[in-house]
Simulated scan of single mutants.
Amino acid sequence: MKTHFTFFRGKNTTAIIFPGWPGESLESYILALIAVFLLSLVVEWLSHARLIEPSSDNNIADGLRQTLMYGSRVGLSYLVMLAVMSFDVGVLLAAIAGCSVGFLVFGSRVFMRSKVGHSNMDQTDLPPLKC
């Protein structure tokens, strides 16, 4: 197995996240790119999700749900990072495209329901990623 330490282009990536995955076939490589795209999309969705309805009487349960969502987002973000560390240009572009489309759909003003004020963008369950 050849390890790359510079970006390369090709379908012969043999270790994106797991050893031996996606393999040598073009179909497996395309499936891996779709998986990285979707993984990045889910990270953006979790970053902008409003899934927890705050209850004033149970802050502990709300905090635990928020912590579980945060841990999930961090774990998925690290998986995307590991995929990009395969140094495959296609994987990098799939990760960037997934994050970009995720932001367009879940974080930008394009699909906001309310046009009055922009304070809705700050009311997510999780704090923004700070890189």
Rank of each mutant, 00 (worst) to 15 (best):
K130C: 07
V36H: 05
T6P: 00
I16G: 10
A35F: 08
Q66K: 15
T124A: 09
R65I: 07
D88E: 14
S119P: 00
G107Y: 04
D125K: 11
F18Q: 08
M1C: 11
Q66W: 05
T3H: 15
V74G: 00
G117M: 01
V74A: 10
V116M: 02
A15K: 13
I96D: 00
G63A: 12
E27K: 07
V101D: 07
F7Q: 10
R109G: 14
K130D: 10
R9L: 06
T13N: 02
V36C: 01
F8H: 15
F87Y: 15
D88Y: 01
V74F: 13
R73K: 14
N120M: 06
H118F: 09
K130E: 06
W21N: 07
S119N: 14
R113P: 01
T3G: 00
M112V: 10
K130H: 06
S100Y: 00
G102T: 02
I30K: 09
E24K: 14
G107Q: 02
G20A: 01
T3W: 09
S72D: 01
G75L: 03
S72V: 05
R50T: 10
V74M: 13
F37A: 03
A32G: 06
A97F: 02
A32P: 06
H4T: 05
G107H: 02
L33Q: 07
A97I: 07
I96T: 10
N12A: 13
R9H: 08
G90I: 01
F18M: 04
L39P: 12
S86K: 03
S47F: 05
L68E: 09
F37G: 04
I16A: 13
A83C: 11
R9A: 02
F106H: 15
L38T: 15
D122E: 14
L129P: 00
L51T: 05
V42N: 09
L64D: 06
G107P: 02
M121Q: 08
L93I: 15
G117E: 13
L26G: 00
Q66N: 02
S47L: 12
S72L: 04
I96R: 04
D122T: 15
S47Y: 03
G23C: 11
G63Y: 01
G90P: 07
S77A: 10
A83D: 02
D62R: 15
D122G: 13
M69W: 10
S108E: 08
M85L: 07
A49Q: 08
L79T: 10
H48N: 12
K11R: 04
L68K: 08
G10A: 04
Y78A: 10
V105C: 07
V101N: 07
L46N: 05
F111N: 04
T14G: 12
W45L: 14
L64R: 08
Q123G: 03
I17G: 05
F87H: 14
T3A: 12
S77R: 06
E44V: 03
W45R: 05
I52A: 13
L82T: 06
M69H: 11
G20P: 02
G98P: 08
I16M: 15
R73L: 02
S56Y: 10
N58L: 05
L93S: 14
L33T: 14
A15C: 13
P54A: 11
S100M: 00
D57R: 14
D57Y: 08
I30H: 04
H48P: 01
I34G: 09
R109A: 12
F37V: 11
N58F: 03
R65L: 06
L79Y: 05
S47W: 06
